[in-house]
Design a protein around this nucleic acid. Structure first.
Lengths: 222, 222
DNA sequence: CTATTTATAGACTGATCGTTTATTAAAATA
DNA sequence: TATTTTAATAAACGATCAGTCTATAAATAG
């Protein structure tokens, strides 16, 4: 008996959602973002994590093939969460482009303070674990940073278009510089339990892009 | 205590070295620096590590009270190793102060490349693990970074004294900025398996300190 | 010799790791 | 109702974790 045309109707209990975006699954991912941002991937044991979320172990493997697969899902979710946050700030046309970046930095800084500087950046955390993680993790993390970099590049180019930033500067190189340094600042802020490193880096970055510099970074004396 | 004057001579087998700086202990620490720089502390299992070094478990616990104590010893050793490296470069009076920093950066970059960008910075690695490490680890790591910062501050002040760097800049703040960004660059270099992030950060840093920043002062030197 | 201490050696412990298997509950069709 | 299929969970598994234990070899002193 092969089903026909538009109403095949399978026999048993149907999946809650076509793809599998269950309530429990979402709770696992949400809490996963928090915990992995604080403790990292390797150091987080499934047992203790699941106990926190109140989900039995058997259920976990119903939603995810493995801890690795879970890690990938959390990474994806974090990437989308952070991209939304970046877009919310960097595309806010009510502010000037550089003011938007100010707002993002202030928001991120307040976020770290709110969690007592215990949480860092999921990408930074897992980036340090890269040696003990599958190789596609590394590629994914790099891709995520690249997407952030792209968004900042656009914002900086807007700043150039509005005359807020010297057109002689390479916006993409500046964006690259920002994320390199920002990840370092987040790490340092956790070590110091203080927002000072974030401020030091960002004010330095602002000085750098507002200074009277010549076009490319590779031109230097000595 | 019936021992007298200058030849007490204890009873049993004497330690190989007066204080305990044994060959085996040193081998453990040396290899520990390498492994922890690559895989981090938490992700490194004692069993597998000791098998690599060829030291039985019984020996390990003869030299160290615990994995934690071992971690502290490795941290200490790495701090001293890195301080020696910094001093070698930053106190090299045959070069100008900024050239010394150039040399350090080139050396570090070559080192990362030599190990295929698999190894990062021990301080950066363990810094990300701070949430799952004893609190004194965090303090120690922060102190280590502070000592590096101090050394760079001195070097930058020397650059100011020689007119190589604007005296209007805050040398200590610049040094702070450098290490914040450098740790981020090392992390990113591992992710990209490339020295590019190191170059991007350092050339940006150079431009920042050579530009007419902080609203005052002469800029061009030489 | 015996006594004592350093250093090596590895089997063993209980806890926890990520994962698997088996079972029960629920929701649909027939 | 009975049947089918998926949702959800409980319990158990082998491997590995950090750490302990006992045993033994080596080197000194009495």
């Amino acid at each position: 008996m092969t089903e026909s045309h538009n109403a095949p109707r399978r026999r048993g209990r149907p999946p809650k959602q076509p793809d599998g975006q269950l309530e429990t699954r979402l709770a696992l991912i949400r809490r996963g973002m928090e915990v992995l941002t604080e403790r990292g991937f390797t150091a987080t044991g499934l047992e203790g994590f699941l106990k926190q979320v109140g989900v039995p172990k058997g259920s976990f493997y119903h939603y995810f093939d493995s801890k690795e697969a879970f890690g990938r899902a959390v990474m994806d979710s974090y990437a989308r969460y952070f991209e939304r946050k970046l877009d919310r700030h960097l595309l806010n046309t009510q502010l000037s482009p550089l003011q938007r970046l100010d707002e993002f930095v202030a928001d991120a800084s307040a976020g770290m303070a709110r969690h007592g500087f215990r949480r860092g950046c999921l990408v930074g955390n897992m980036g340090q674990e890269v040696a003990v993680l599958p190789d596609d993790f590394r590629q994914q993390l790099d891709a995520i940073l690249h997407s952030w970099q792209q968004r900042l590049t656009v914002c900086l180019q807007a700043a150039q278009a509005q005359g807020e930033l010297s057109a002689a500067l390479d916006a993409e190189e500046l964006a690259q510089f920002f994320w390199i340094g920002w990840e370092g600042a987040v790490l340092r802020a956790r070590l110091q339990c203080s927002a000072a490193p974030l401020d030091v880096f960002y004010s330095g970055f602002l000085r750098m892009i507002s200074a009277n510099c010549s076009g490319s970074m590779i031109s230097d004396t000595q």
